[in-house]
Design a protein around this nucleic acid. Structure first.
Lengths: 210, 210
DNA sequence: AATTCCATCCCCTTTATTGGGGATACCCAG
DNA sequence: CTGGGTATCCCCAATAAAGGGGATGGAATT
């Protein structure tokens, strides 16, 4: 319940607001604030806070690069990105860099405190429109038109298990059908996708048809 | 604020609990409940609810397959998956199938109602451990140290050709070495990546290297 | 000099995959 | 009702892949 927190933001006003909010909250202790990503790389490893609130949009080093470098040295550090924009690409780059949560800046202060609780509890707090974008990533990451429009549901199901690396026998056991049936489905999948091997099918599926 | 909601769950008790909860809540109207995925495919397009609460674990047709089929016909339908397990693979398959949110079943009823509000507002409600798994997916999506740092240049070259779907013989011809040598390299690649088949190696490479 | 890693080649066996063929049954649409 | 598509099962056969072993030469490190 007692978290040490650091703030990284190059806007002095926001920085002070956040520090004031954190220090005025029970169970939180703000151990410092950095005005740049470069400074954060020096201060944060020294302060060793539980959670970092990181502005994503900073001059010179971006919050994304900063979190990537911090995470390389401190894998267990929890980082919440703060942003004014909800740009899709920034979201994914930040998450790939190791961010543990992603919040819009215009967030009620109690929501921010809740998010800090949540991330320390092992969650991944995201503002709702951010979460939507993340989920949409999976939607469009689904099977390509070529894959989904030609394959039957059963064939798609089996393709999923092929991608998972299952042998025919394992697929058969998992679906409760015979290995021969699996073979038939797989052959149909290959024909429909115009591939000659499991690997080509998997690649086509993962690359969304490219 | 006025949402029509349908429930799909093959457990009669849970179904009744959910219906009672929804009907007892202002701003919600439960338009029906289905005891199976098959029935849902018939009823839901007819009822045209705003939101569907879908059990992921049902006999015969799984909730995942059901949501995939429903979404194919009704792309704007909002689907919240309900699960007792937090299995990573199920989460991703459900999201890929088009689910808009993912909740654990043992959720306080007010949280469930909040989630319904959130999803209709364009969000993507997720229980916190679910969200964590989703974010972890992006973390591991970075260039994998496991792939790039352990493999020799030759092994990486061969892994590339594996991904391209080449047979061992084709790889051998392309590199001007014998098939036996290819086999040896491939075996080394498998050991270093801790996989047991070409498919698993390819998936590991594509998922973590792209 | 010794060790370690890489790349190359060869042997063995067993299992998995692939490519045709055919068959039954179901459901849905023309 | 007669297709078409789907899902299920079975047969044949050939090829590909995997897992184990061992061997050589070279390059780099210790």
């Amino acid at each position: 319940m007692n978290h040490t927190i650091a703030v990284v933001d190059d806007d002095a006003g926001i920085r002070e607001d956040l520090v004031a909010l954190l220090d005025g909250s029970p169970g939180c202790r703000c151990v410092g604030a950095c005005a740049s990503g470069e400074q954060a790389l020096i201060d944060i490893p020294f302060w060793r806070p539980t959670v970092v609130l990181m502005d994503i949009n900073m001059a010179r080093m971006s919050g994304i690069e900063c979190v990537a470098r911090l995470k390389a040295r401190m894998p267990d550090l929890l980082v919440l990105m703060l942003t004014v924009y909800e740009d899709g690409d920034s979201i994914f780059r930040a998450l790939k860099a190791g961010a543990n949560g992603y919040l819009v800046k215009r967030l009620a202060s109690n929501k921010l405190l809740e998010a800090i609780e949540e991330v320390t509890a092992g969650g991944a707090p995201m503002s709702c429109h951010i979460a939507r974008k993340v989920v949409q990533f999976f939607h469009q990451a689904g099977p390509s038109p070529e894959v989904s429009e030609n394959l039957s549901p059963r064939e798609l199901e089996i393709l999923d298990l092929l991608v998972a690396g299952c042998f025919f026998k394992e697929i058969a056991d998992q679906l409760g059908i015979s290995g021969e049936t699996v073979r038939t489905h797989v052959n149909h999948v290959y024909r429909k996708l115009h591939v000659r091997s499991r690997t080509e099918a998997v690649v086509k599926y993962l690359r969304k048809g490219a």
